[in-house]
Nucleic acid binder design. Structure first.
Length: 217
DNA sequence: GCGACAG
DNA sequence: ATCTTGTCGC
C-alpha cells in the first residue's frame, strides 16, 4: 500500500517536492480556505471552509471523516493529515486563492511542512500557522521575532502575538510568496483571538464533529 | 547515546 | 492531536 508508513519513502517524497516550489504564485486574494483535522484515536475529522478575504463571511464548509493511514511522526505530519485536506479540496465549488493550514510551512527541517506540501498538492499559494516551534532558532530583531535557519540565518517564520498576553503563533510561508507577504496577508485575518479567524472557525467545527458527531452540509 | 520533536 | 479534575481569575 502506498499510504503505509515508510520513513525512507516519505523523506524522498519531501525532498523531491523541493523542485516544484516555483510552480505557484500568489495573485489577488478573494477566497481563503482554512483547514483543520482533529482525532479520536485513529479516527480523523477534517474540516475545510471557504471565506471571503475582506468580510470573513463563510461561503462553503465541508467535513470528512475516516481512519488515518499513518501515525503522527514529527516532521511528517503532512502524510497523516493531508488526505483529509485533499478530500475536502475536491468538494469546493470554487477554488481558493489562498490556503491556511494548521502547522508549519518552510519552517521545517526540509522546508516541507504540511502547509508547503498541501499548497503544492493543490497548486495553490499557502500559509502555515503553527502554535509551537518545530525548526529554527528564535531571533529577536527590530522588526520582530523570527525563527531563522540555524545555518543560513534565513527567516523561516514570524513569531506573532496578536495581543501581548497571548502565546505566539508561528507564521510561515507554505508556497507561492515571501514571508513578509504571508505575514501581511495573515495579519488581516485576526479578530481578537490568538489565531486568525478562519482557522479558529474550522478548528471549532472539527472538534464538534469528533466529539458530538455533527454533520456539516 | 540522549533529548527534542508541528498536529 | 488527545487523555483528564480541579482550580485560579476576570
Amino acid at each position: 500500500m502506498d499510504t503505509a508508513w515508510n520513513r525512507e519513502r516519505f523523506l524522498k517524497a519531501q525532498e523531491a517536492l523541493r523542485n516544484l516550489t516555483d510552480s505557484v504564485r500568489l495573485g489577488s486574494v478573494q477566497w481563503v480556505a482554512a483547514f483543520d483535522v482533529s482525532f479520536q484515536g485513529r479516527r480523523g475529522y477534517g474540516v475545510g471552509a471557504l471565506f471571503d478575504y475582506e468580510t470573513l463571511a463563510m461561503s462553503e464548509c465541508y467535513s470528512v471523516s475516516f481512519d488515518a493511514y499513518v501515525p503522527y511522526v514529527p516532521t511528517f505530519l503532512a502524510f497523516r493529515e493531508m488526505p483529509y485536506i485533499l478530500s475536502i479540496w475536491k468538494r469546493f465549488t470554487r477554488k481558493p486563492d489562498l490556503m491556511l493550514i494548521d502547522g508549519h510551512g518552510l519552517s521545517h527541517p526540509r522546508a516541507m511542512g504540511i502547509a508547503t506540501q498541501a499548497g503544492l498538492a493543490c497548486r495553490t499559494p499557502s500559509i502555515g500557522i503553527a502554535k509551537k516551534p518545530l525548526f529554527g532558532l528564535e531571533l529577536q530583531t527590530e522588526e520582530g521575532t523570527f525563527l531563522v535557519h540555524p545555518e543560513t540565518g534565513e527567516r523561516l517564520a514570524y513569531v506573532y502575538k496578536h495581543k501581548p498576553r497571548f502565546n505566539p503563533v508561528y507564521i510561515s510561508v507554505g508556497v507561492g510568496m515571501d514571508l513578509s507577504t504571508a505575514v501581511n496577508v495573515v495579519l488581516k485575518l485576526f479578530r481578537g483571538c490568538r489565531e486568525p479567524e478562519p482557522l479558529r472557525a474550522v478548528h471549532n467545527v472539527s472538534l464538534n464533529e469528533g466529539r458530538i458527531g455533527l454533520h456539516a452540509v
